[in-house]
Design a protein around this nucleic acid. Structure first.
Lengths: 235, 235
DNA sequence: GCGCTATTTTGAACGCGCTCGAAACCGTCC
DNA sequence: GGACGGTTTCGAGCGCGTTCAAAATAGCGC
């Protein structure tokens, strides 16, 4: 609608606040950091911070959103290297985790809100729609240029499936305390192999009878309004 | 260790508080209910309430825990009716959801803490261990008396798998706004059919090569300490 | 410069979950 | 009965996220 919804001043101040918050979150964690502290470090009063962000959570969300941008570029770059589907997905996941690495310790709360049905931080909520769509677009691209062989009827559900898969991996990773997160590495390796095997199976004639079931499930999971999905698909 | 860790007075007061909280949560929701209100309705001061429950969340947890007891009895009763695995699981799920029904509207926050790695309300946390073990024991029973046919190597992982499955269903159900939750009904029907099909596949010789993968994944998911699992298995 | 509106900042104040030292209550042994 | 130790209750108070009316500042046409 509007060409610029925010003045450049406001944008700069937002950035200052985000920087201050990021530094503090890293130093002391999310819960332990006070909004007064964030405002202080940004050189403002609390009220000003609340003028730019409706809640403390929203700062966290802005932080998370900020990590997505270069992810897309990088994915485009990497994608050129290999046409193998599994390789491409693995690259995307590895890169995403590497990107989130610095935030690992305080990103827990975000995942925490994930399951609260009404929460604005839920990855299914309206407020996070833009982020979600950007992530879906990324997976679109990964699939698009790849040599993936899968039963046709699943093609349209793949991005959403991969997105959910990514969320699961991230959630596992956040909890993973093993040295250099080697358990997550193994999880990715194993689950990707399994997924590829299952994909192959969907094309075996004898087993195709299960496809109807799977498809129905995917549609159920997509929800009563698949509008967001369609929008992504047509972009 | 101790024969009685709490006096009968304390137990009665706890019950009063839980009753008051339940009523208020139903009237106004969890977040909207004040600890001062809970204490008021229970005829106490805030401090007293906090003597019996360390946090507001803990009341919610006690509430949830309270719904499990009769679930076990009921499951035993129902189990006698059919030996078919899918029927038994479906019965258990249906009953569990019916049980949670009255709490549906304010149980969101509980699910919300589910993913926070450090949160005491996480279903993976130490504090909820007892609840988790009771639920696992329930699934043990469901499996035990049934005519389930599955590749042997998976038997020991089944309870944990079913528990996770139940958690997923509950989380879907909490978000399900469809009339009389018919979407959840469909989800259960479809996913159970699919699970049964997959179980069957694990015994097909040609496809057994995937079993190693699945097993490794299950072990990864079980975590570095599978002690809780072993304890349940030997009980 | 001057006024005028819209944007941005301020900090006191609110209501919340939760803490804590002191008081009240209880059982029990003399 | 009284003294004493443990349990339970009390409520003022703390620090937090958040709100809001009022003040400061920016931007702009003259």
């Amino acid at each position: 609608m509007l060409p610029e919804r925010t003045s450049s001043k406001a944008r700069r101040t937002r950035a200052t606040i985000i920087d201050a918050a990021l530094a503090l979150f890293r130093e002391k964690g999310f819960e332990e950091t006070t909004m007064r502290e964030v405002a202080d470090r940004a050189g403002l009063a609390v009220g000003a911070a609340y003028y730019h962000f409706r809640t403390k959570d929203e700062i966290l969300l802005a932080l998370y959103e900020g990590t997505i941008d270069n992810s897309l570029e990088r994915a485009r770059f990497k994608s050129a290297k290999s046409a193998d589907f599994a390789d491409r997905v693995r690259d995307a996941l590895d890169f995403r985790l590497a990107q989130l690495r610095p935030y690992k310790d305080f990103l827990g709360p975000l995942a925490g809100h994930a399951l609260i049905p009404g929460s604005p931080l839920s990855p299914f909520a309206q407020e996070t729609e833009e982020i979600r769509m950007r992530e879906l677009a990324l997976f679109e691209e990964i699939i698009h240029g790849s040599s993936l062989k899968v039963a046709l009827e699943f093609k349209s559900h793949l991005p959403r499936f991969l997105w959910l898969y990514q969320m699961s991996v991230i959630s596992f990773w956040l909890r993973d305390q093993s040295p250099s997160q080697e358990r997550t590495e193994r999880l990715i390796g194993l689950s990707l192999s399994l997924i590829m095997k299952l994909f192959a199976v969907t094309r075996v004639p004898v087993l195709r009878q299960a496809n109807g079931l799977i498809l129905a499930l995917l549609q159920l999971a997509a929800g009563p309004d698949a509008s967001a999905e369609r929008r992504v698909a047509s972009a």
